[in-house]
Each structure stands twice: as C-alpha cells, then as structure tokens.
Write a protein that binds this DNA or RNA. Structure first.
Lengths: 346, 346
DNA sequence: TTGTACGCGTTATCAA
DNA sequence: TTGATAACGCGTACAA
C-alpha cells in the first residue's frame, strides 16, 4: 500500500527484473551486452525494458563504476568566435566516443576558474580541458588536480611545468612567420603590439616576432614593443603611442597580438589621416570574422580552432583510457591569410 | 592491510570523520552548514576537511537526494554568434544559482537531438533547455519528457502544444515592425525571403510580414514569398529568382528571414549591377557581426541572445524550484537597427 | 548535539 | 547461465 506511489516514480532495473521474475543483475548484464546471458533472456529483457520505458540511471552507474563518461571544459570566454569553434571540435569527438560535456566559464576570472575546477572535481568528471584565465597565477590547483588523478589537458592557453598535456597553436612560429612575411616585402621598421606577458600566447608571439627581427639582421628595439592587451581599445591606445613618435622614427609596419587589437590600431591610423598599407602596414592574428570585411582587409593568422578542439579532446580521451602518457605536447599549425593590409600582394 | 590502497584513493567524509573520531554524519552536517552542530566541532571539521583535500562527491549526493543541480542544454548549432551569446546568458544565471551545465549539440539533426535528450534524462538533469533542430518533427519525445517530470523550457525555437514553456524573440511582431518600417518609407512592392515553414520562426516571421502588408492596404502576393532557408546560399538563389522577374514586376524591397540569407541576396543584387538600396532595398534579421561591415551596411533586427538565454534559464530554475508553472510563454523584445541598406535614413 | 541504520540504483564478486 | 550480497558515498529519519 505504502509502496505504490504516483506514477511519476522512475522505472529501475529492479522493476524490469520483477516483471520477468529474474534478478536485477541479469537485467544489467542483458542491457549492457555483457557475456553470460542466455540470448533468449537477453531479448526478453530488452523488450520489457523498452515496454516499461526503462532508462538506466547514470548517476547510480557512475557511483558504482567510478566512471562518469563526462569531461569538464573550462573556458575563459564563450561568446567570441574562437571558443565556440573549439567547443564544436571538442563536442564532435566526445559525442562520437560516448562522452558528455560539462561546460564552465571563468569569465577571465581566476577565482571563478578555481571554483569551476573544484566543481568539476566534485562532479567526478573523467577529465578536464582547460584554457586558462588571463588572471590565473596560482598553479597549485592544477597540480592538485594532476595529483588526485584527474586527467588534464590544456588547450590554447597552456600552463607549463606541472606535468599536464597541452594542445596549442604554434604561436611563436606563426608570429615569426608573419613577421618574416613583412620583412620579405622590404619592411625594416616593424613594431609589435604585444599581449599581456603573463599569458603564454603573449610571450610566445613576442618571442616569434623578436626571432624574426633578429634572425634577419634587423634591430630589435624595445620602444617598438608596446603592450596592447587583447582588445580593440588597447590596440587603439598602443597604436596612438607609436604614432606619437616623430614621423621619421615611426614604424612602417605593425604586428598586432590579435585581430581586435589590430582593429583598434587601424582606427588610430585612419584617424590621423594615414593610409593602410601605404603609410603603415598592419597584420593581425586569429582571423576574426570581421577581418576580411574591414575597409582594408586585414592580413592575419588563421587559428584552426575546430581542429584544436578536436585534438585536445582526442588527447584527453586517450589519457583517460590509458592510451597516452599524460604529458604530450601537441602543436597545431596555423596558416597565414594574406589580404591587403600588409601591402604584400601588390 | 588490504584496505590501505595507493594514495590515489579519494578522500571521503568517512576519512574526515575517522581522523576526528566522530561520525560521517556530523561531518556532513558541519560541511553543509546545517544546524545541530557544535560550532567548535564545525570549525575543526572544516579545517581537517581542507587539510585532507576532501571534496564532496556530487555523484553520491545526487543519488541520495535525487537532485543533480545540473541542467542540460540542447543546441542545434554552436559556432555562430547567436547561440554562444545565449549560452553566456544561460551560464551567467546558472552559475550564480549554483547549477551546472551539460552541453549537447544536435547539429540540426533530429536523431542526434533525441539521443541528447535521452542521455540528459539518464544523467538525471534537473531540467532541460532546448532549441529544436530544424529537422525535428516527432514531438513524442518532448511529451514523454514532460510526463516523466523533467522540467523543460524551449528557447528561441519552440514547440507548441505539448505543455512546455517557451522563451523567444517576438518574431512575428519584429518582422511586422521591420516590414512596416519599409512601408513607412514609401515602398509598396516588398518581397520576403522566407525561412523553412516547419520551423516556428520561419512561420512567425512570415505572418509578421503578411500582417504588415495586409494591414497597410498593400497586396499580399504569393510570388513575392520565396523560401530561402537560413543560409547565404539559399538567399542568393531565392534573390536570383526574384530578379529574374521582368523589371516592372520586381520588388523594390526585400525582407530576408535572417542576415546570412540577406548577405546572399545582396551578392545576387550586386552581381546584376544593381545598387542597394536605390534599385533594391533589403533588410535582414539577427544582427550578424558582419552586417555593419557590409559594403552597404545592413538594416536588421537585433536579437538579444544573451538576454534570451538568461530569461530561459531563469524560467527553468523557477520551474525546478517549484516557483513557476511549467507553461509560461515569455517574449523578449527585439530592436531595429537602422543602417543604409533600407534607404530609410536619407 | 551526535550517532546508527538504511536507502538511493547500479555493478563487482563470488557462490550456486 | 544466473542470483545474492556487498559495495559506491552520501543524506534522511530517527534514536540516543
């Protein structure tokens, strides 16, 4: 009498078992296609399970098996074009392999990122993909994670030296390439609007720029490297500082840390009545969707976000399933997209 | 001897309890800030828990409480600007209220959507937010979901008549508004590049267009409504069919189902050597990031995706926590963004 | 204020 | 080939 609650009760394996007069264990074996089940029994179980509308409880299963078939993703931002594409790549791989995705968002905030990581740990995800927040400086939480046995793969924005894998664009090489592309077209006075030096891509792109300059017999000048950050505003301000130099000291070309920063710089250049690329050439990094639609289309580096997401997910699943060492560094090659802003195709 | 496994064992509430010589129950009470715990005990428990690196197992907790504090999100696509913004809105609300997000992606495929829904149900999410795939025609799965007690809120692309809430843009009203904006500027021959009529927004925008036409004493012509679908390609082809009409029968203005469709149409117009808006005016729908950067910037309807996501999440949480009836219809107002392509600001 | 017994739904293990 | 029993780690309901 007491047991017969409303029909909103969920159907369990036991219900299916009772219906057939067998044990829950056999139901479990039958439905999970395990051996040691009579084929006729299996068929009947499957039919009854379907008839009753049974759906296995993943929560209970996870508690018993200590596997959730779920991976956590921690992103510093969601809305702009790079990360959505990366998510698509991640999702493609995980869906196909039967894993699910818990998405968290740090909003570039270190505390929120730690919070997200702790939550994912509590949710017992099988592994975590992280692209770190810019403000993240305390790496202890990553080390704890690795120590506690959660598989961890960084992507795009990596943290080194803590024994975790990383999948990233070859930022240094790409920055070197695009800078050399300018050098190859005769520019000798080339400035760099740099990213924050705490962030790995900021450092890597600066190194690439510097290697291109010094490797081609040009002079590396500290006053030609101005930190602009990742946004349009910073690019605008940094470019104005360069343009405040006397015309003879000004750069002929600029390598921006990314496309938004380049957009800001282009605005500053236009406001002074200067022409792109005749007076100042400029190149970006990331192939923002707007780059091709600028008054002067922007030469840039295309970052294969989708590919990056796929690779990161593949690496993580390989680690989870014990098929890969947890310390692989994978680099995805980026391509130059030559447009008019660099004055290289005339 | 047997019990002492490797140190990769997870710390449980019992470990913390043993360390202090108390029961696991007291640990649970202390850590969850429940009453009936001596304040000194509570403090000591918290210290030891932290010291041991204890993190509560949400899987076990969920099994015991029948609550996962997790909501599932089903999206037809991930990469383009609308959904990432919506996710951001959803995430903002859920994060703040202590809920987590499982993200799934149907890739506009009905089978994959059903799969996602079944998975989320097995994962015992507390509720689901869905934006349906274009190919989804079998609504039984939604009805089952509602019946089995999972809270359900549709957003942006809704399914009616199955007793679930919906949060959407007021598509009909917005389409009417933008069409009337053209009428108000003297256009009388206005065509519509329509969306698929299976999808609710396709139908709603057509109704809005039609109401504007008929409500202002103009003639509604079937041959001025051409299905273009949601993509650039379809817009291009549909527009070409309109331009194949003899010049005297051609429309003077076009209301496209969305911005990508409008981009395709603009390409078709330009290829024939016609000018926008002088020869053919055009308006879009969705405020794609590229719209403002077109050779002739596109007049469009801005869809507040972030706001929509927030509202949908709020509605879902209200239902989960029993504070709202599971059948609310909420409409988010969209704004016109007037640019040059409609020839309305000269 | 604290502890004990049990259940949540599944699977692992070992016995039948 | 099948079943009984005991986990998995927590919270609920009650007893102490």
């Amino acid at each position: 009498m007491r047991k017969k609650r409303l029909r909103s009760e969920r159907i369990t394996a036991k219900d299916v078992a009772n219906e057939l007069g067998i044990s829950a264990m056999t139901v479990s074996r039958a439905l999970n296609n395990r051996p040691y089940v009579d084929e006729e029994t299996r068929t009947r179980v499957q039919q009854v399970a379907k008839g009753l509308g049974y759906s296995p409880d993943h929560i209970a299963r996870s508690l018993a098996t200590r596997k959730t078939h779920t991976i956590g993703v921690v992103l510093p931002e969601i809305a702009h074009s790079f990360f959505p594409e990366a998510i698509r790549g991640i999702e493609e791989v995980t869906y196909q392999r039967g894993y699910h995705l818990i998405l968290t968002h740090s909003a570039e905030d270190a505390e929120r990122e730690k919070d997200a990581i702790r939550t994912l740990e509590s949710k017992r995800v099988d592994g975590i993909l992280i692209s770190t927040a810019q403000t993240m400086e305390d790496y202890r939480i990553y080390k704890q994670l690795v120590k506690s046995g959660v598989q961890l793969v960084f992507f795009d924005r990596c943290v080194w030296g803590i024994g975790a894998s990383c999948v990233s664009i070859d930022d240094e090489e790409s920055a070197k390439q695009i800078t050399e592309h300018l050098i190859g077209h005769g520019y000798t006075k080339i400035a760099h609007l740099s990213g924050p030096q705490r962030v790995s891509i900021g450092k890597a792109r600066l190194r690439g720029y510097r290697r291109a300059i010094e490797g081609n017999g040009l002079l590396y000048r500290e006053d030609f490297v101005i930190e602009s950050g990742f946004h349009e505003r910073g690019g605008y301000e940094a470019m104005n500082r360069l343009l405040d130099l006397s015309p003879s000291r000004r750069p002929q070309a600029v390598v921006a840390i990314n496309d938004p920063s380049a957009f800001g710089a282009m605005k500053a250049i236009a406001e002074r009545g200067l022409r792109i690329p005749q007076d100042v050439a400029i190149v970006g990094f990331s192939d923002d969707i707007r780059s091709e639609l600028m008054p002067t289309p922007l030469t840039t580096v295309r970052q294969p976000a989708y590919e990056l997401g796929k690779r990161a997910a593949q690496q993580l699943l390989a680690q989870i399933e014990g098929k890969s060492k947890p310390l692989t560094q994978s680099v995805v090659k980026a391509d130059l997209v030559i447009r008019r802003s660099c004055g290289c195709n005339s």
